[in-house]
């Protein structure tokens, strides 16, 4: 009995410490970030080419018999903070104003902005029409970095392997999916992940820090799905609701093409 009591007391103590640490984080200026504590996590992903519902012939995504590649590994990630929401237009404007950042090839750069600023009333919408490199530049300026895919997925699904941030069942009321435009970040509080991250499914796809080449092409792995879903043809890149365990290959080419109306990002920061 004593033994059990000790365990309970120890657990309570640890919980208090963790909460205190979270409180400290918020008080230290990370009010827009949540803590994802260190710990073991089973990382399972399925590869997707984004089109033909996984049946696309793509040697990076499926094997010669048409089976999609999957990967499962046990990870022990150190603790990190992650943005509660996607980076907004307003935040990105602060970055531009502060740094005077100008892209080398500006085709489609912040295509939805007019006269150097975002459309009225969309300050709290996620910023889109930016490159992965521009997202990274923002993160550097903010003292943060882009999440690895592992970090992104742990923040989205916790440690129980759930398919959606809010649980295992699809629920269109809990995310901005299959609509015409972005919505203000955090519009779906009931769709929060176990750690309190919002819009981890839908609203906009999110860049992760993975930029790869197979020697023939350049591509990035993006996560979470976006608001837009072109469903008129099976050959379209599939948008809308995407589960947390899908890593989707996004073909990269010219900057004008790589900037999209549906891809934004959020940042992370090491917790020491």
């Amino acid at each position: 009995m004593n033994h059990n009591r000790f365990i309970i007391q120890f657990t309570v103590l640890i919980s208090v410490l963790i909460s205190a640490r979270g409180a400290f984080a918020e008080s230290a200026g990370y009010s827009d970030m949540v803590l994802v504590p260190a710990g073991k996590f089973t990382y399972h992903v399925e590869y997707s080419a984004g089109t033909l519902d996984g049946k696309a012939l793509d040697s990076l995504v499926r094997d010669e018999r048409g089976r999609r590649y999957t990967m499962t590994k046990d990870l022990d990630l150190p603790a990190f903070y992650i943005d509660r929401t996607e980076v907004t237009n307003e935040q990105f404007k602060q970055f531009l104003d502060a740094t005077g950042y100008r892209p080398e090839w500006p085709n489609s750069f912040l295509k939805h902005w007019r006269d150097g600023t975002y459309p009225k009333g969309e300050g709290n919408h996620p910023v889109v029409w930016i490159l992965l490199a521009e997202a990274k530049a923002y993160a550097r300026w903010a003292g943060k970095r882009l999440p690895t895919e592992e970090e992104w997925q742990k923040a989205a699904q916790g440690t129980d392997g759930r398919l959606w941030p809010w649980g295992n069942n699809y629920d269109p009321a809990k995310a901005n999916m299959d609509s015409d435009c972005t919505r203000p970040v955090g519009s779906y509080p009931q769709g929060a992940s176990p750690y309190g991250c919002l819009d981890m499914a839908g609203n906009v796809w999110e860049w992760t820090d993975t930029f790869q080449s197979d020697g023939y092409h350049l591509y990035a792995w993006i996560r979470g799905g976006g608001y837009f879903n072109a469903n008129e043809s099976p050959w379209y890149f599939r948008g809308g609701p995407i589960t947390t365990d899908q890593r989707t290959k996004l073909w990269l080419m010219s900057p004008g093409l790589n900037r999209c109306a549906t891809v934004g990002f959020r940042c992370v920061k090491d917790a020491e």
């Binding site: 089109t51 796809w205 043809s233």
Partner: peptide, 10 residues
Amino acid sequence: NYPRLGIDQR
């Protein structure tokens, strides 16, 4: 175009 078409409204 394919397989990139459909990621956004373009």
